[in-house]
Design a protein around this nucleic acid. Structure first.
Length: 1000
RNA sequence: CGGGGCAUAGCUCAAUUGGAUCGAGCGGCUGUUUUAUAAACAGCGAGCGCCGGAUCAGCGCGUGAUACAGGUUCGAGUCCUGUUGCCCCGACCA
């Protein structure tokens, strides 16, 4: 018996103690931690630690190095980081090499705007240098922001599509396509300014009001073909009927009529044949009235009706030229009447307004060289991409009657001409929005120009392809038995079936796209990109497309960058002594087109995965937004097939778009956007990361202030849960105090069984890339299992038992396992907080052999917890029932509280009358029940009455006095002279504490 | 217009793949504790009647709900058809 004075009771309570702050202050602590990671070079440490482990390669789709990051970019990068970190902790060696897409039009446009008038006369090389600097600056800012998000990767050496090595590889890969015979030169309509004599990108045209002649023109049915005769018989009853059948078309660009090669109809529309004297016109049934009004036909008699599909491949004659015009089926044909307008915008506007009856006949004049839809359908039907208009917008000599005239000047002449010929049914002026050049403000035209294409359907070198004045070339095609006869499209369609798509509908979307996509036009009439490495013989115009030459050029790019294309003469880019294979000429000019930037980024799998030693081809995972089905997933697939006959990815994951609460698209201009950098500044990157993890990214993801508020609440709950565990581990030395499984108190064993189930669920979810399941599992575990139940119950034991007491060590053992597992499971999501938890776990000091000594310096170097399995499921089931009874008790306590019987639950004595299964369950726990229910006394009685409720709970005031130390009520308070205000339980604890001379 | 997707509580998500009356957490409201304290825990969630001045409790009745409308099925959030709304792609935004 000690003779010292009694202890201060408050000092004998083991209150939580930890450096793990309650308030996260993420805005400040995150950057500090990032700095520490940089100091120890955490990413490299992870690489070293995983060296030799099985590889897992996520290949980063390069964001465009133009603007600053927005919420969508953040979502994309955080998801990738979740994949990389979780695979790492699952034991893989999962390196992450980020990249940037550096070439392309948006940067050019940006630079042009900045330069303004100064751009004129600037050498291409200088212009490219400025573009390069702009991209470099943008990607630097992006890198800083990505790192701030807590994303670990090879930030000091990302891949850049504008690096020498990358540009060289891009050129070589173009050579691969050439070698396989997929590359050809064809024509394709682009916006063309006849004033500046240059191609324009869509972003470079402006739409303004413009008045065009609107004309209705009749194209006669060919009466001398078999099909034509049959059709005539169908309409008029006899092929000898003197009446002539005409297809009535409408257009606002009469100057494109000389290039007419076809007429498109919608296969799903009804068309009518109407009589006008000795002539019969075919127009869309719905538009008969409108057309008749306009064209001044009285009381048109409908003599027959057909679905549009009936006209497929019928032949009409050109309105005045000795040339056929082919009837074709196209879904782009609308009744709005504007589908044959020569601009995309007109078409779109018509669609949006779903305008009816403004103009049109439902039959669309088609000139494949002068319109986008025309081009697509023309290709489909094998029409020539015919464009008899030169750079200056003048008709070429082959155009009868109008050769040499500028197209806009020719318009009225053509109208007059048609009127004289009697092929014009009606004309009027038509005001609409029409594209104009953004620089010179003149109206632009659609004009087919020579372009390089990659064929989706070429099977062999001899496959028929389009030829233009430059001819085509198929050098050095190697007869590779296996795939020589397989087209890119076929290869691609077969390959995507082997790829795993998440979500699964991705394969449908991809298949659909591949089936219908046109040949890939890889030419861009621009400067900021990888030049198409092709030469033209100065004397015979022969196009040199030779993989050997291309590789020679690529070697130059590798050392001098593709700027060399602009800085050097053709002869300095060709091997010494190279002569034209066709005419032996030795003078060459360079191709001026550059490659489509999708070719750049599509090349990344080879250019990056085969370049960085830590990576490998193919990638395990691509993960991008759903817009990339047509973009990067597609171009990467093409390049993969050309290079290695295989898709460059095993799994493709897509995420949805970020939208606001109303489900509308995020828009900065409307103020509905959430700025990621703002969120980071105010709440921390963790909140953004937790938001990503909480959302089901396979659908569109919602973001708003309220949602982020909720996520912030959740963060604090998780943080406090961890803090409670850490605080109660003060003084716990795992190597000394750890209680073996078999000696744990039952509820502690239960908590660990629950933890194990959580670990199992979380790991399965991580493996399946279902991060929101991880989040909900962990969050639910924190709120319900731990905070509301386990922690609340064990508080009494942790605080009031003697520090060394077995019961306390038992709880601490569970807390230790929980905190450790939480840190690991949270690490991919809460990268900063998990590391902070990790640091605040009790130190592992001198070991006794059972527990490993020391801990890796960061949780990101650790593995996920291991699933024990073989859980005692009966334990979990039993406790589930106990908690059901507990809920009943809590309800009863609340009622007692409302009626002012009690305040704190410890002021209560609970009496339970239960029927059997429940009674015997409760009986097992006996004295424990008061701790489980957090009341001072519990009495359990059995009833045999089958009419009684299973459980009946009544509440009374607890007997005895409140113990000053543990606040439980006991009739024995006051019995103990040394500590007269304390209960029998505390007396024992105090005795132990005094004996050991220890406080918490 | 075409291709693809989505729609469950104010918010984030479940629902054993066609199984019974659709759930959890959060938020909200109302309280309790002051030993996780810038915290923790709990209860509550249409309405009507018994009910007569009001409140609480109890008991009883009973309604509704997976965007909307149909269909298949013994049975549908889940499968089919259509409609509406929103998103993505066809326009170089992830």
């Amino acid at each position: 018996m000690t003779t010292e004075t009694p202890l201060e009771l408050k000092q004998t309570i083991n209150l939580p103690k930890t450096d793990f702050a309650q308030k996260a202050n993420l805005g400040q602590t995150e950057p500090a931690r990032l700095e520490r990671w940089t100091e120890i070079n955490l990413y490299q440490l992870i690489r070293e630690r995983r060296a030799g482990a099985e590889k897992f390669v996520l290949h980063d789709g390069p964001p465009y190095a133009n603007a600053d990051i927005h919420l969508g970019t953040a979502l994309n990068k955080i998801l990738k980081d979740l994949v990389v970190k979780s695979r790492t902790m699952l034991g893989y060696d999962a390196p992450y090499v980020p990249g940037y897409d550096c070439h392309g039009l948006p940067i050019e446009l940006h630079v042009e705007r900045k330069l303004g008038a100064k751009k004129a006369g600037l050498p291409a090389a200088t212009f490219r240098r400025i573009c390069r600097e702009h991209a470099a600056a943008a990607l630097k800012r992006q890198t800083r922001d990505f790192q701030r998000l807590g994303i670990l990767g090879l930030w000091e050496n990302p891949y850049l599509t504008m690096s020498n090595q990358y540009e060289a590889e891009t050129a070589r890969l173009f050579g691969c396509f050439v070698e396989r015979g997929y590359v050809y030169k064809g024509a394709r309509p682009v916006y063309w300014c006849i004033h500046d004599q240059t191609a324009l990108a869509e972003a470079e045209v402006e739409y303004k009001e413009h008045t065009s002649p609107s004309v209705y023109v009749k194209f006669p049915l060919s009466n001398d073909t078999v099909d034509g005769k049959a059709f005539k018989r169908e309409v008029l009853g006899s092929e000898d009927d003197p009446r002539q059948i005409f297809f009535l078309i409408w257009t606002t660009t009469p100057w494109t009529l000389p290039a007419n090669l076809g007429i498109a109809v919608n296969p799903n529309f009804e068309y009518a044949a109407i009589e006008n004297g000795a002539e019969v016109y075919i127009v869309a049934d719905e538009l008969v009235g409108m057309v008749a009004d306009k064209c001044g036909l009285n009381r048109p008699q409908v003599i027959a009706r057909f679905p549009g599909s009936r006209f497929d491949r019928l032949e009409a004659r050109h309105a005045w030229l000795e040339r056929p015009s082919l009837l074709m089926l196209g879904e782009h044909v609308t009744l709005g009447g504007e589908a044959d307008a020569e601009t995309e915008l007109d078409v779109k506007e018509a669609r949006e307004k779903s305008a009816t009856g403004k103009a049109g006949t439902g039959l669309v004049h088609t000139a494949p060289g002068h319109g986008h839809d025309d081009f697509v359908i023309g290709k489909q039907y094998g029409l020539e991409i015919y464009c008899p208009v030169d750079n200056a917008g003048r008709f070429t000599s082959e155009v009868e009657h109008f050769a040499g005239e500028r197209v806009f000047d020719a318009n009225p002449h053509i109208v007059d001409f048609m009127r004289e010929r009697g092929v014009l049914v009606f004309s009027e002026n038509y005001a609409h929005r029409y594209p104009h050049c953004w620089r010179c403000k003149n109206p632009v035209i659609f004009r087919a120009t020579p372009q390089w294409f990659i064929s989706l359907d070429a099977h062999t070198p001899e496959a028929p392809v389009e030829v233009d004045e430059d001819g085509r070339d198929r050098t050095n095609y190697t007869e590779d038995e296996e795939d020589a006869h397989t087209s890119l499209r076929e290869l691609a369609l077969a390959e995507i079936e082997r790829v795993e798509w998440l979500p699964a509908w991705g394969v449908d979307r991809m298949r659909n796209m591949l089936k219908h996509r046109p040949d890939w036009c890889v030419s861009r009439q621009r400067f900021w990109g990888v030049p198409i490495p092709v030469f033209y013989c100065a004397s015979c115009q022969f196009a040199v497309t030779d993989p050997t030459i291309i590789n020679h050029v690529a070697d130059i790019f590798a050392t001098d960058s593709s700027d060399a294309w602009y800085a050097r003469e053709a002869k300095d880019l060709l091997p010494a002594g190279f002569a034209c294979p066709n005419c032996k000429g030795t003078e060459f000019t360079k191709e001026t087109d550059i490659l489509d930037v999708w070719f750049d980024s599509g090349s990344s799998s080879v250019a990056v995965l085969e370049h960085y030693p830590e990576l490998r081809w193919p990638a395990d995972v691509y993960l991008e937004g759903g817009d990339q089905y047509r973009g990067w997933f597609n171009s990467s697939l093409m390049v993969g097939l050309a290079a290695h006959n295989r898709a460059p990815y095993n799994t493709v994951i897509t995420h949805g778009w970020v939208i606001n609460v109303q489900g509308a698209k995020m828009s900065k201009s409307e103020g509905t956007g959430v700025a990621p950098l703002e969120v980071i500044k105010q709440s921390g990157a963790e909140i953004l990361r937790l938001w990503v993890a909480s959302s089901n990214y396979q659908e569109d993801v919602r973001a708003s202030d309220e949602i982020l508020q909720r996520v912030g609440d959740a963060y604090r709950k998780i943080r406090n849960t961890a803090r409670f565990a850490l605080g109660n581990l003060a003084g716990f030395d795992p190597t000394r105090d750890y209680v073996p499984q078999s000696e744990l108190l039952e509820i502690d064993a239960w908590a660990l069984a629950e933890l194990d189930a959580v670990v199992e669920r979380a790991l399965a979810a991580y493996r399946a890339y279902e991060f929101h399941t991880v989040y909900h599992t962990l969050y639910n575990f924190c709120t319900v299992t731990l905070s509301a139940r386990y922690f609340d119950i064990i508080k009494d034991r942790l605080y009031t038992a003697a520090p060394h007491a077995h019961a306390r060590r038992s709880a601490q053992t569970a807390l230790y396992e929980i905190a450790d597992a939480l840190a690991r499971l949270l690490a991919p999501v809460l990268v900063f907080t998990a590391d902070e938890i990790w640091e605040n776990l009790p130190p592992l000091v001198a070991g006794n052999g059972d527990v490993p000594v020391g801990r890796v310096p960061s949780v990101h170097l650790a593995d996920f917890p291991v699933v024990v399995g073989e859980r005692d499921e009966s334990l979990r089931a039993r406790w589930a029932q106990v908690y059901e009874v507990r809920d009943e008790v809590l309800r009863a306590l609340e009622a007692a509280r409302v009626s002012k019987l009690i305040g704190s639950g410890l002021e209560a004595r609970v009496e339970i009358i239960a029927r059997d299964p429940v009674y015997s369950l409760l009986a097992q726990y006996g004295e424990e029940l008061r701790y489980i229910f957090i009341v001072s006394q519990v009495g359990v009685m059995k009833t045999e009455n089958a009419d009684a409720p299973q459980v009946r709970v009544t509440v009374a005031r607890a007997d005895g006095q409140k113990c000053e130390r543990c606040w439980n009520y006991s009739v024995r308070v006051g019995e103990f002279t040394r500590y007269p205000t304390v209960c029998e339980r505390c007396i024992e604890a105090l005795a132990e504490i005094e004996a050991e001379g220890e406080t918490a």
